[in-house]
């Protein structure tokens, strides 16, 4: 059973990384795997597993960065956002 929220420890802690995904989505799975493989510390949320009130507030959070509220969305330092599984872009933004 996948948890709806959590934190993954990692050696790279320089950035505040928030991962928004869906538990059923393969691209989200790949993105999370990439972050784990690169030992990036991050917080994750699976929006499809949230109850409706919390889900709406998290959707509002994502909407600020990604108006289409698509997944995965990774927000870095509350300053930048990477939409979709884009390893090269994540590497660049995270300085990996």
């Amino acid at each position: 059973m996948v948890e709806s929220r959590g934190s993954i420890p990692g050696a790279h802690q320089k950035h505040l990384v928030k991962f928004y995904g869906l538990s059923t989505c393969i691209w989200c799975r790949k993105t999370r795997q990439f972050l784990e493989d690169e030992s990036v510390a991050f917080d994750f949320v699976y929006v499809d597993l949230l109850e409706s009130d919390e889900r709406e507030s998290v959707k509002d959070e994502i909407r600020k960065w990604n108006p289409r509220v698509s997944f995965p969305t990774v927000v870095i330092d509350d300053a930048q956002c990477v939409i979709g599984f884009k390893a090269d872009e994540l590497k660049q933004v995270l300085g990996l």
């Binding site: 869906l22 538990s23 059923t24 989505c25 393969i26 691209w27 989200c28 799975r29 929006v47 499809d48 959707k59 509220v69 698509s70 997944f71």
Partner: peptide, 27 residues
Amino acid sequence: SFTLGLVEGLLVNEGRYGYWACPCRLA
């Protein structure tokens, strides 16, 4: 293996919603 993962997501959504909502979108 990628495609089987998507099919699994479709079946999860079938159980959840009663129809095959795209596994990569929020239904």
